[in-house]
């Protein structure tokens, strides 16, 4: 499985969190545009990204390139990640996941677990 890390912030830390959970997952850090393109062209399986404010930076480019139905906002300011919603989003076939940087330690394990459960 290959995960591309886009969004705007905490890219290295997100990569580190993914590797802590499963070192065998292939990760690559890209700009938000290149990361969304990697999903569109099937060079990667999932997109994960964060931003500071939930103002759109985490997923804006992924939504533009892939469509809203492929993207899940896992958390926003004042809305913590919810594992049931993440599980459902993965089951629904969503490919891009965005959250605010301060939620990354909760959001990343939820997303990776949900993806691994689906496989």
């Amino acid at each position: 499985m290959k995960i591309v890390i886009g969004g705007q912030v905490e890219k290295k830390s997100i990569e580190g969190l993914i590797k802590e959970i499963d070192p065998e997952i292939e990760t690559v850090i890209k700009s938000d545009l290149d990361a969304a393109m990697a999903i569109k062209t099937k060079q990667a399986d999932y997109y994960i990204g964060a931003c500071h404010t939930g103002g759109g930076g985490a997923l804006a480019m992924a939504i533009a390139m892939l469509g809203r139905d492929q993207c899940e906002t896992v958390s926003m300011p004042g809305r913590k990640p919810d594992s049931a919603k993440v599980e459902q989003a993965v089951k629904d076939g969503k490919l891009a996941f965005g959250f605010t940087g301060d939620h990354m330690e909760t959001a990343v394990p939820m997303i990776i677990t949900a993806i691994k459960n689906k496989q």
Binding site: Q8, D32, C51, H52, T53, G54, G55, G56, G57, A60, M61, M76, P77, G78, T100
Partner: peptide
Amino acid sequence: FTHLPTALTRMENRETLDA
């Protein structure tokens, strides 16, 4: 320059930011 247009669009749609 991703934050700015998404924030302006959010305001146009009268969505508020709780952060």
